[in-house]
């Protein structure tokens, strides 16, 4: 049952059409930000309204939705968004990455490689990769039109000159199909390589900033770097305290007030699956 008095997936049909048109143009122009008439949602701006509007516009009754925040299905905002869609669209949800047809995410890409039958929807706080260097959107639009990304190269080069390496650890800028500079949203740079040639369609929604953009499947996505300073994804150099993974991205837990630390997988489903795998093998 869906919420009485509201359309399927909350948005009215005219709004969905407007967003669907924006999504199609976003796919046709990989990495280009499409302005769209973002609506006020019943959840606050900055809490995933862009991703929610994109998901609401593509979602159908046969979809299975997974929502993660920081890689986890049980973080409060992920729970809240999942509940919202159960309430307004009555659709099935899952915590298992492989079972989902649509995955809405904040700040992570699942560890398990996505397939052609999946769509990844990112919540984006700030779609403009140049915003710290040039706050005026009229100007950044012009720079994108000219593919003039000198500002960003200079900024990264200054990091190297001052610190010996690039200091950006998340929201690390990427070039999409060698044309548009794009914000991957605040995922850790560790996740950037997963965007490259991904089998799944990647859609990005920024509600407050009213922009939608996309990376089609199998599209080159290159993290900016320099020949003598190649891009290096960083993770904490530890093994997950639960599943033992040495390749997944880790959350750091403070275990006591005496310098104690533990590290566990940020992707809760990945960790869960690894915990069950040895048991299944043993049986």
């Amino acid at each position: 049952m869906t919420e009485a008095g509201y359309n399927f997936a909350y948005l009215d049909e005219a709004t969905k059409r407007m967003i669907r048109r924006a999504i199609l143009k976003a796919v046709a122009i990989p990495g280009h930000q499409i302005p769209f008439g973002a609506r006020e949602m019943p959840l606050p701006y900055g809490w995933g309204t862009g991703g929610i509007q994109v998901t609401a516009s593509i979602l159908g009754p046969n979809d299975v939705l997974k929502v993660i925040d920081q890689g986890a299905d049980d973080t409060t905002n992920a729970v809240s968004i999942r509940r919202f869609f159960t309430r307004v669209a009555g659709i099935a949800t899952t915590e298992v990455t492989g079972e989902a047809s649509i995955i809405q995410t904040r700040h992570r890409i699942p560890e398990k490689p996505l397939t052609e039958n999946q769509i990844l929807v990112y919540q984006v706080p700030q779609p403009e990769p140049l915003f710290r260097l040039e706050p005026h959107r009229a100007e950044t639009r012009r720079l994108h039109a000219l593919a003039d990304y000198g500002l960003m190269h200079v900024r990264l080069y200054e990091d190297i000159a001052r610190l010996g390496h690039i200091a950006k650890a998340y929201d690390y800028p990427v070039m999409v199909n060698e044309r548009y500079l794009m914000s991957p949203s605040p995922i850790p740079a560790f996740d950037n390589p997963k965007m490259h040639q991904m089998a799944a369609l990647q859609l990005f929604g920024a509600g407050r900033e009213k922009r939608i953009y996309a990376v089609p499947p199998y599209t080159p996505v290159r993290s900016l770097d320099f020949e003598d300073h190649p891009f290096r994804p960083i993770r904490a150099p530890h093994a997950c305290a639960i599943c033992g993974s040495t390749t997944s991205y880790l959350d750091e837990l403070v275990t006591d007030d005496a310098g104690g630390r533990a590290f566990i997988c940020s992707d809760t489903d990945y960790c869960q699956e690894r915990q069950q795998a040895p048991k299944a093998a043993a049986e």
């Binding site: 606050p44 701006y45 900055g46 809490w47 309204t49 925040d69 920081q70 890689g71 973080t75 409060t76 905002n77 904040r106 700040h107 992570r108 706080p125 610190l163 010996g164 390496h165 200091a167 650890a169 998340y170 929201d171 605040p186 995922i187 850790p188 740079a189 560790f190 407050r208 960083i234 993770r235 904490a236 991205y249 880790l250 959350d251 750091e252 940020s266």
Partner: peptide, 27 residues
């Protein structure tokens, strides 16, 4: 818009914070 974005800082940012932590430790 403003209150949403200011208050969204309350949401978990473990992942990006962790990447900053590791970055800082490396430096």
């Amino acid at each position: 818009e403003a209150t949403g974005f200011v208050e969204h800082l309350k949401l978990p940012h473990y992942v990006d914070f962790q990447s900053e932590l590791e970055n800082l430790r490396t430096i």
